[in-house]
Amino acid sequence: MTRLSGTGMTLAYDKRVIAEDLSVEIPDGSFTVIIGPNACGKSTLLRALSRLLKPTTGTVLLDGRDVHSQPTRTVAKTLGLLPQSSTAPDGITVAELVARGRYPHQSILRRWSAEDERVVEESMESTGVADLADRNVDELSGGQRQRVWLAMALAQQTPLLLLDEPTTYLDIAHQIEVLDLCAELHERQGRTLVAVLHDLNHAARYATHLIAMRSGRVARSGQPGDVLTAELVEEVFGLPCRVIDDPETGTPLVVPAARRRTGDLSTNARI
């Protein structure tokens, strides 16, 4: 039994069912990446695992207990989430935003301690935003801003951290920067990371455990080398491709098949 798992989950927004009888296990200490086509339910799964969405049936277990039966503040000390869209309040500085990650560790009686301060500083150091501490978040570039949000999530000091498409809206250099940072946090601090990613090659390169989803169910899961095959990409995404070895890392590299010839296109055009 791993620390975080979901069994027999039906996930739905109002009456719109996204997934039925869905079960996943997040291996402890892994960097798990969830991949799948648009609307396959990967973000919904992440919402369910992070208790933002209550499964209609089935349960999410965190440390052996139903995540919804535990006080939300207690959960927030174990399980962190970086949502896809968060708003930085007007005029907030980097240090203030990162400090908000300490919220679950504070109370009316215990508001701010040397411990909080140390953690905030460390989080800013490890994400490389310490020099920006006094800057307004609105003045930062997209890549810097994403690192600030990561720093906030780190300041929450949770052994498990879920990231919903942390690289969206970033250019390729910043995408790699953020993913390198995640890999480093995973290796150095031993946190369990779960991320939803769109880019299969990034997923293959950084994940230690891969979950491929299609229409609300897990198509395959396991080591990236075992999961990410040409057959799977064809099955899950409907994309003909070749999978070769990444010349940099030896991990699978998905190369989409070349554009079909004119003859094929005209058949398509008739449809």
């Binding site: 919402r47 992070s50 208790r51 933002l52 939300t72 503040r73 207690t74 959960v75 927030a76 000390k77 962190g80 989430l81 970086l82 949502p83 896809q84 869209s85 968060s86 708003t87 930085a88 309040p89 908000r100 990650g101 919220y103 679950p104 504070q106 929450q156």
Partner: peptide, 20 residues
């Protein structure tokens, strides 16, 4: 007060931080 400050970052971010 403290919860309202967190809530300005969005419902998801606030829930993730343990705001009811």
């Amino acid at each position: 007060g403290p919860g309202l400050r967190i809530l300005e970052m969005g419902d998801d971010a606030a829930s993730a931080l343990g705001v009811p």
